[in-house]
Nucleic acid binder design. Structure first.
Lengths: 184, 184
DNA sequence: TTCTAATTTGAGTTCTCACTCAATAAAAGT
DNA sequence: ACTTTTATTGAGTGAGAACTCAAATTAGAA
């Protein structure tokens, strides 16, 4: 095992970046701050990563994965499960959620691929929700289900936005309210 | 007329800041970039504004004002009117819509006032929508109407987000779809 | 143990940022 | 025309950012 030490250090750096992002936001995630939190000197940082952006992107990828856990479960979840996973993500990792939403808008992340990656990710999520909804309510046609899922996800994103603006906003409660409207 | 020249220059600076914010985001809105776009030297900038933040804030205020035109009409509109106004805002002024969302999300604006200002603005909008909805459908109780408006506005914001990510997204169509769901 | 490659170090370098200010120019008032 | 207020200029400051690199250290292989 030749690069065990390096890999371990790289992991510590990503963890530190994620912690800072979660606690203090994107602006505070400087290389210096990340290095201090990881207990590492800048030289090591740049020995292991090409740029700061690489690390932030790695955190964002983890965030994307975190929104939809256990993707192999596809075909068995209910809409409530999916919504609950989304709520948990926003509640547990509000600043990852912020990063997730900001990335598409901000010029800070210059990686061109990230935008299309997020659009594709959204499309996959819609498909998963539609499948779950039609399982719960088989009487719905495909287009009907799609329209409802579209509105549901848009509302969830909108509430996420609100939660970003106002930390006191009761995200979980409002998300649950949406479910009751949808499934009535 | 003592400060006409200064006021005109200040206007050019605000316009330039708005253009840059809309086209390239908060990160790109440096003093240098704003000055270049406005055809002004940094010295003039700081003769007219205390800080960069002052200018950004001015742009945000304009964005907020643009979302809800004709506020004196309160008490006469229907939900469809309000939604249509919102759609028109997003379609006609995607630049301001982007500013509204970007700035709200970013931690870069340290001014505490801007956040609460946006929250207050949202509350006012909810009230206006609730009044309109109860006028359209008197059978609804206040809490019922509030919950529906909440979801409607969240979905509209979510769709706005989607539209920012993907310019091909059919915002107007989806917004109309929401209305049909709400008022069925 | 000894050699070698992976890893870490930290004092820089370069860059760009927001912001300043003394000097100059333009405009307005008398 | 003269004076005073207002507006503009642009070189410059210091702070802090991302990032570099030659040298030192560490750890696995022989």
């Amino acid at each position: 095992m030749r690069n065990r030490a390096g890999e371990e250090t790289a992991g510590r750096i990503v963890d530190a970046a994620q912690r800072i992002l979660a606690e203090a936001g994107l602006e505070a995630a400087t290389v210096k701050a990340i290095c201090e939190a990881a207990g590492v000197r800048p030289g090591s940082f740049y020995n292991l990563f090409d740029s700061k952006e690489t690390v932030i992107l790695e955190v964002v990828k983890q965030a994307i994965r975190a929104v939809d856990p256990d993707p192999e479960r596809t075909g068995r979840d209910h809409v409530t499960d999916l919504v609950e996973a989304f709520v948990r993500f926003v509640e547990d990792r509000p600043d990852l959620a912020r990063v997730y939403i900001t990335v598409g808008l901000s010029g800070g992340i210059t990686d061109a691929g990230i935008r299309s990656r997020m659009i594709r990710h959204h499309a996959e999520r819609v498909a998963r929700f539609v499948a779950a909804l039609r399982r719960d309510r088989p009487e719905l046609t495909e287009p009907e289900a799609e329209r409802q899922v579209d509105a549901l996800l848009a509302a969830l994103n909108g509430y996420t936005l609100q939660r970003m603006l106002n930390p006191d906003f009761d995200f979980a409660g409002h998300a649950k309210g949406l479910l009751e409207m949808e499934t009535r």
